[in-house]
Design a protein around this nucleic acid. Structure first.
Lengths: 199, 199
DNA sequence: GTCTATATTGAGATAGAC
DNA sequence: GTCTATCTCAATATAGAC
C-alpha cells in the first residue's frame, strides 16, 4: 500500500481509538512504518491529516443523501431504505464514525474546526421531507412532522450507538428496520390509544 | 467557594469543552486561581480529579434509577416520568454529560477507565422492565420488548443529543414527552397499518 | 494548605543530507 | 520521497520553603 494511504489508515485507527488530542504524530508514523517528516511531507501537519480524513468520510455521506432524493416508493419504504443505507455506511466506516461522533457531540479535543452541522442538518431535512410526503399521501398522521422526524432519527442514532459500544448485542440492519416499523406502527394497543384520546 | 470545589468546577468546564486529553492541569489550576501543587494535594493527579468528577455524576444517575423502581402508575406514565427525570438530570449537568457522552461513545481520549457500562445497562433494564409491565397489563402490544425499549431510548438519546449540539432548536422536556407519546401511539394512519398487515 | 522553582518527559515540527 | 538528528516548547509532576 502506498505510504500516503498507510498514513491515512493508521491515523483513522488511532484517532478513533484514542481521540484526536491523545494521538501523537509519532504513533501515526510508527504504525505506518515511516518517519516523521513523511507525515509533514504529505500533509501540512497533524490538523491536515485529520481534515483529509473527515472530509473524505463526509463526502460519502453527502452523496448518499443526494441520491436518496430521487428514489421511488411510499414514504415508509423510502424512510426504511434511507435509514438502512445510512446505517450500512456507518458500519462500513465505524472507526471514522466513532471519531466524528465524539467530536460532534462531545468536546472538540483540540481538533481543528470542521462543519459537521451542514451535513447533520441536511440529514434531518431529508427525513423531514420524507415525513411530509407521507403526511400528504395520507400514509402518516397529520401530527407534528418534527416529532416524527426525531423519533425516526432517534432509532437510527440508537442503533449506531449500540454498535459503537455493544457490537455483541447484535444490533444489525434487520433490528433497526424492526424498530423503525414499530415506531411507524406504535407501541400501545388500540384500546390504550382510545383511552388516551378520551382524556 | 472552597479551593477543592473550585478545582472540580473548573475541571468539569474544561474537560467538557476541550476533552480530557486536550485539557492541561495548568489550565485547571489557572481557572481555579491556585497553583499546581494544590491540585496534586487534593487529588492524586490528573486522573484522580477526573474520576472524582465522573463518580459524583453517575451516583446521581444511579440514585434516580433506584427510586424509579418503586413508582406508581401505568407503564406509559412511568416511562414518561422516568424519561423526563433522566432528561432533566442531563440538562442540569450538561457539561458533565457532554464529557461522559464523548468518552462512552467515542475514543477514550487517554482518560482512565471508568465502568460506564454498568449504569447504561441498568438504564436499559429499567426501561425494558417497564415495557414488560405494560405488555402484561395489556397496555402495550405483545411485540418484541427490546425493540420497544430501543425506540424509547432512542427518543431520550436524540433529545439529549439535540441539546448538546443545537440548544437553540428548543428540545425541551415537553418536546421529548411529545415524541415519546408519538412513539407509543405510532406514526402511520390506521389505514396504512391495515394495508401493511395484509402483506 | 499554598507557594516558587524546577525536574523530566514527550509533544509537534523542521533542517539538511541522501 | 525518505531519512537522521535536533530544536523548541509545553506537559505532568514534585521538592522543599513558608
Amino acid at each position: 500500500m502506498a505510504v500516503r494511504n498507510r498514513l491515512l489508515s493508521a491515523a483513522t485507527e488511532l484517532f478513533s481509538r484514542k481521540g484526536y488530542s491523545a494521538t501523537t504524530t509519532r504513533e501515526i508514523v510508527a504504525a505506518s512504518e515511516v518517519t516523521k517528516p513523511v507525515l509533514y511531507y504529505y500533509f501540512r501537519n497533524k490538523e491536515g491529516i485529520y481534515l483529509e480524513l473527515i472530509r473524505g468520510a463526509y463526502a460519502k455521506f453527502d452523496a448518499l443523501l443526494d441520491t436518496s432524493r430521487s428514489e421511488k416508493g411510499s414514504a415508509s419504504e423510502r424512510l426504511l431504505r434511507l435509514s438502512d443505507q445510512i446505517f450500512s455506511l456507518f458500519m462500513k466506516n465505524i472507526e471514522m464514525a466513532r471519531l466524528m461522533y465524539s467530536i460532534y457531540y462531545g468536546p472538540h479535543q483540540g481538533a481543528p474546526f470542521f462543519d459537521f452541522d451542514t451535513y447533520h442538518l441536511k440529514f434531518q431535512d431529508t427525513i423531514r421531507q420524507l415525513v411530509n410526503e407521507g403526511k400528504q399521501q395520507g400514509e402518516f398522521h397529520k401530527g407534528n412532522a418534527d416529532d416524527m422526524m426525531w423519533a425516526i432519527l432517534g432509532a437510527v442514532n440508537v442503533a449506531m450507538e449500540v454498535q459503537l459500544c455493544h457490537p455483541e448485542l447484535g444490533m444489525e440492519r434487520k433490528r433497526l428496520a424492526q424498530i423503525l416499523k414499530l415506531i411507524l406502527r406504535g407501541i400501545s394497543t388500540q384500546k390504550t390509544r382510545q383511552e388516551e384520546k378520551r382524556k
